[in-house]
């Protein structure tokens, strides 16, 4: 692939979803775009890339290229600690703060094949105090294909052995051949919607908890701060944001501040929380 062809792919992906394709990821382009080239009857990935250089490439082609280039790496209870914090710190706080309305809304941004929202759903299900509450978990991703997989809630043996405690597998999954099917009571707690993090998220509603983990690492600084600003705009004043272990708001956005004693958890920065429009999470 020539530098010009590689550049065409990188520019398309960046324009469409903000993802920065660094030169060290160039090796991914070939393997990820091969199936797309085949579907579009192109003789090679290079030919596909040249199609992207045309003034107005087909929208479906652009979408498939973007979907192929985003990373879908995820697993159940990834890094474990954020979920322990959710159970021990965030949920008790919300149980007290939302006692009158009994509604909690949680957003998993860039949820990929659904393991993160489903992990959260399992935690909420295992929290007896939430029994009569409405817990709405919204999983979004740019890729409609991966959302289809998420919605199906069917996982391979490999996937259910990454992060998922065996007791939860036994409790919430049914075996179907060599696949594991998550049961309807957990799946019904999560709704999936296609969403591009570059777009305004208003239509998703307001959230008490936002998980946006291991996503910002793929973006440049202005894109990161734009995303954080948009997330802040749909958070309840006392809501919390989770970022991945290698991510921070420091030097990226002044809309958030770290929650003391809770590593990786952020809340709206105090001036914003005071001056910004007061919004309660509403379905």
């Amino acid at each position: 692939m020539t530098p010009a062809e590689l550049d065409a792919v990188a520019r398309t992906v960046r324009r469409e979803c903000g993802l920065v394709l660094t030169p060290d990821k160039a090796y991914l382009v070939d393997s990820r775009l091969m199936p797309v080239a085949r579907r579009w009857a192109k003789p090679s990935v290079e030919a596909l890339a040249r199609e992207l250089m045309a003034p107005d490439p087909p929208r479906d082609l652009v979408r498939e290229v973007v979907e192929a280039m985003v990373t879908n790496e995820t697993f159940f209870f990834r890094d474990r600690k954020p979920f322990d914090q959710l159970k021990a710190f965030v949920l008790p706080r919300l149980l007290a703060a939302r006692a009158d309305r009994r509604v909690i809304r949680i957003w998993c941004a860039a949820c990929s094949s659904g393991q993160e929202p489903y992990s959260i759903a399992m935690i909420c299900k295992e929290t007896p105090q939430l029994a009569n509450w409405k817990v709405e978990i919204v999983g979004t991703d740019i890729s409609t294909e991966i959302l289809r997989q998420a919605e199906a809630g069917s996982y391979s043996q490999f996937e259910v052995q990454r992060g998922l405690p065996i007791q939860l597998l036994v409790k919430h999954f049914e075996q179907q051949g060599d696949r594991w099917q998550l049961d309807a009571s957990i799946r019904s707690m999560v709704s999936f919607r296609q969403f591009n993090l570059l777009d305004p998220p208003d239509r998703l509603g307001t959230f008490d908890v936002v998980f946006c983990r291991n996503v910002l690492i793929y973006f440049d600084l202005p894109t990161k701060s734009g995303i954080l600003g948009r997330i802040a705009s749909v958070m309840a004043p006392d809501g919390v944001l989770y970022l991945g272990g290698a991510e921070t708001v420091l030097g990226v956005s002044d809309r958030f501040q770290p929650v003391r004693t809770q590593q990786g958890v952020y809340e709206l920065a105090t001036p914003d929380a005071r001056q910004g429009p007061v919004r309660m999470a509403a379905g």
Partner: peptide
């Protein structure tokens, strides 16, 4: 052994 029956028995 990878069926639910065995897993339950083990637990």
């Amino acid at each position: 052994e990878r069926d639910l029956k065995h897993i339950r028995e083990a637990l």
